[in-house]
């Protein structure tokens, strides 16, 4: 019987070599790749996200954990088959038009991927109409908007408005974030949620997609 707690703990302690050994051992014992992914790696990244939220872990450690996880996912990939592709939600993420900041958004994107969601990272300087067309094309359930400037925050509202006008508002949950953004602002522009860091953003997205 595979000890998923051990996989989780090893991921959280960033011992990459040992983690890879544990994943290989688990496969040898006949544990399914899907179970290793969900109950070991994704569950471990949930802990990483929580620790990030509580400032027990910091960005370089989170990056290292994500890298360790993706190395393990490479091992599991050939064995996942169709079962593995049933994701926990399609997410569109991008920085709004006029804003070129990408670091925070990329962290959020990485955490959501690690949480098992299918993330389409559109990049920076994304116009409202491009968010709209991507929601349609990717059949997204979650849209994440990032803005790091007080001057580009109004573009978040315009993007939400464009999603409403396109008749897609009921299909998607909209999350907003970025240094100047607050819960109050999120409420004001009619978004569904706000998160202050990548760990809580990922947790919130999972909750809203469920």
């Amino acid at each position: 019987m595979t000890d998923f707690n051990k996989i989780k703990e090893t991921l959280v302690s960033l011992d990459v070599q040992h983690l890879i050994e544990l994943v290989n051992e688990a496969l040898k014992k006949g544990t399914s790749a899907v179970d290793i992914l969900n109950d070991g790696l994704i569950a471990g990244m949930d802990i990483v996200g929580e620790k990030m939220e509580n400032e027990d872990m910091f960005i370089p450690e989170v990056l290292m954990a994500a890298q360790a996880m993706s190395q393990c996912v490479e091992i599991l990939k050939p064995l996942l088959g169709d079962e593995g592709s049933s994701t926990k939600g399609n997410v569109i993420i991008g920085t709004v038009k006029g804003d070129l900041h990408d670091i925070g958004k990329n962290l959020v994107s990485m955490m959501m991927e690690s949480a098992g969601m299918e993330v389409y990272n559109l990049g920076v300087d994304i116009a409202p109409e491009d968010f709209v067309s991507q929601i349609r094309e990717k059949n997204a359930q979650i849209v994440c908007l990032s803005a790091l400037l007080t001057t580009t925050m109004p573009m978040m509202k315009l993007t939400v408005d464009a999603i409403v006008e396109a008749g897609l508002r009921d299909q998607v949950k909209i999350l907003v974030g970025g240094a100047p953004v607050t819960q109050e602002f999120a409420d004001e522009i009619g978004a569904d949620g706000f998160a202050a860091d990548a760990g809580s953003a990922s947790k919130l997205a999972k909750k809203l997609a469920a």
Binding site: I59, P60, L63, I103, L107
Partner: peptide
């Protein structure tokens, strides 16, 4: 200046 946490 950019964050050292994402790239040393």
């Amino acid at each position: 200046v950019q964050p050292i946490s994402t790239d040393v």
